[in-house]
């Protein structure tokens, strides 16, 4: 039991730590491998799947989902969920069009800031309700999902904003590339790196993991749980707002239905990406990979000649497989940690 009766071992890492680290690596590595496998198989069936144009389309298609998934991952890590992201995206996208109609010469960076700010305000509504009313996030954001969408419908009143109403430079941003990489994908990469950095290196980021790992222990440790969770929802909202602006740039045509039903796709991407739905573990990199994987599957299934009616089922099966893998892995890690001596 005590270390005294064993000779001091001066190893840097123990089996337990190595094992746990490998398991965490496996989560993200596993998704990456699945992605590679999918691309290889699809390319064998149809070599054009790997053409530059198609790759660009894939990246573009993943971008918005990936940004939403990064925000969602921040929330899920705290053992919460944000179901309102699709509606926030919709509101922000329509607001983008409306603002450009009103102020045609508005600088694009300012529009990005406005969209993110609008999303942050909506996220603050979520976070505030959860903190003040002590109602589970699932219920609160289910409510705001409809409330925000309702506001969108009231504002749009059946109108549609077309590409012609928006500045050409803004629409070009939706399809432009830098060295072959779509600009939107660069946005997503920047968001991913920034959020990943804070979660890994900042005290507040580590506290998000602590809150999700054991909320009661987090309170006993003096972690300001309410404030941290509030800011997690503000982050998720702000990223959904940003995604709304990018959505407007990419599609050009806007009505009140933008982003309808996206929230479940986002949660799916996060879960497939290895973020534990009960919080405390996982990474935004995994969530972003999950978004890319889901998008690629949707693009690959028609190429593979799979009946479109089966596509949703295939995505669902993937989610179940990801969760199954996750459970099996964590059960295995827990078991070996239990049996292994904790002492070095």
């Amino acid at each position: 039991m005590t270390a005294l009766d064993t000779a001091p071992a001066e190893t840097a890492t123990t089996g337990g730590a190595r094992l746990a680290r490998r398991a965490f690596a496996v989560r993200e590595l596993g998704i990456a491998l699945a992605l590679v496998l999918l691309v290889v198989v699809t390319t064998v069936v149809n070599p054009r799947f790997l053409s530059a144009q198609n790759l660009k389309d894939l990246l573009l298609g993943s971008t918005i989902l990936a940004i939403l998934a990064v925000g969602q991952a921040v929330v899920v890590i705290t053992r919460n969920v944000d179901l309102s992201v699709g509606s926030v995206l919709g509101l922000s996208a329509f607001a983008t069009g409306a603002v450009f109609v009103a102020v045609p010469g508005l600088p694009i960076p300012l529009m990005l800031v406005i969209g993110a700010a609008l999303g942050a305000v909506l996220g603050a509504v979520n976070g505030g309700l959860i903190a003040a009313a002590r109602v589970p996030a699932l219920v609160v954001t289910l409510g705001t999902l409809y409330v925000f969408r309702g506001l969108d419908y009231m504002w749009a009143t059946g109108r549609q904003i077309n590409a012609a109403d928006m500045p050409a430079a803004f629409l070009r941003m939706g399809t432009a590339t830098v060295l072959g990489v779509p600009v939107l994908a660069l946005f997503a990469a920047a968001v991913l790196v920034a959020v990943g950095y804070v979660l890994r290196n900042h005290r507040s980021g580590r506290e998000l993991y602590a809150i999700g790992s054991d909320p009661a222990a987090a309170r006993l440790s003096g972690i300001p749980s309410g404030r941290r969770v509030f800011y997690a929802f503000v982050t998720s909202g702000a990223l959904a707002g940003l995604a709304g602006v990018l959505h407007a740039a990419r599609f050009g045509t806007l009505d009140a239905n933008a982003g309808l039903g996206t929230e479940l796709n986002v949660v799916a991407a996060v879960v497939v990406g290895g973020v534990a739905i009960f919080g405390g573990s996982g990474s935004v990199y995994g969530a972003a990979l999950g978004a890319v994987l889901l998008t690629t599957i949707r693009a690959a299934l028609p190429v593979l000649g799979i009946n479109p009616f089966w596509q949703d089922a295939a995505v669902g099966a993937l989610i179940l497989a990801a969760i199954g893998l996750d459970r099996a892995l964590s059960a295995r890690v827990a078991r070996s940690l239990r049996e292994r001596k904790a002492h070095v």
Partner: peptide, 14 residues
């Protein structure tokens, strides 16, 4: 006077 491994996760500790 104990040699607990600081890197291992707390899960599974006795």
């Amino acid at each position: 006077g104990v040699r607990l491994d600081p890197d291992r996760p707390a899960r599974g500790l006795s």
